[in-house]
């Protein structure tokens, strides 16, 4: 008789799905490593960002702003503002994960879009917890490996701008934005935000239009009429 499998069928499916997400993210991290290097970050700075920040949109925004001549502090503020959604994911995950002590400090780094989507809405809470950790660990491994390979490959080029990589950050933002535009309100907000940012450009230093847009959308969210 064969040995019982290590993982139940439900958990095997979680691992397959998590691996698919992790491999796709690894490809996305390749482009992050390449774009960060083209923006002027050193190899150590690039891989440190993926290890320490580990949230894609914030990382792309920070290196994109540095690469386009904005101040690193405008980039840091924008990265933090983009990271606010992870706090809401943490709220949704806290009752499921029930982590305390040191495990909570480890779990926190994995609180991102993909792990939240994989963990919540499972019939079995144990499978949900397993999905969080499996997705988090696999994604962390592939994200950092992809970043390292992308940065090493780009560092080896005499002039990465020849590949047009300096023009690539807006494409990365667009790919991250598109799935969020499935309703009329976010689409209207996106168009308005782009327009306001363009209007601000001649009047304030690079990077500041983003903070103006963030301030306006917070005012709209807090005090505007709810849809």
């Amino acid at each position: 008789m064969a040995d019982a499998p290590v993982f139940s069928p439900a958990r095997q499916k979680v691992i397959r799905d998590a691996l698919g997400i992790a491999i796709a993210s690894g490809a996305y991290a390749l482009s992050f490593g390449a774009i960060a290097t083209t923006s002027g970050l050193s190899l150590l700075q690039t891989v440190s960002l993926s290890l320490l920040m580990f949230t894609g949109a914030s990382q792309f925004a920070l290196v994109g702003i540095i690469g386009s001549g904005g101040s690193v502090w405008a980039g840091a503020a924008t990265a933090a503002l983009l990271g606010t959604r992870n706090a809401l994911y943490g709220v949704r995950l806290s009752s499921l994960l029930k982590v305390s002590g040191l495990r909570r400090f480890g779990a926190a780094q994995f609180v991102i879009d993909e792990t939240t989507a994989m963990a919540i809405a499972r019939d079995d809470e144990n499978v949900g917890r397993f999905a969080f950790w499996a997705t988090g660990l696999l994604l962390f491994a592939f994200w950092n490996l992809g970043t390292l390979i992308g940065a090493l490959a780009t560092n080896a080029l005499p002039d990465p701008k020849v590949l047009g990589l300096d023009a690539a950050p807006p494409a990365a933002y667009l790919a991250l934005l598109a799935p969020r535009l499935r309703a009329r309100e976010p689409l209207a907000i996106a168009l308005a935000a782009g327009l306001v940012a363009l209007i601000c450009i001649p009047f304030v230093p690079a990077g500041i239009p983003l903070l103006i847009v963030a301030g306006l959308v917070v005012l709209y969210g807090l005090f505007g009429k709810s849809a």
Partner: peptide, 20 residues
């Protein structure tokens, strides 16, 4: 409000880094 932030910021990033 929080879910609106990435929508607005990503759109503003696209606009500024493409057209300025």
């Amino acid at each position: 409000t929080v879910p609106l932030l990435p929508v607005a910021l990503l759109a503003a990033l696209i606009a500024t880094q493409t057209f300025s």
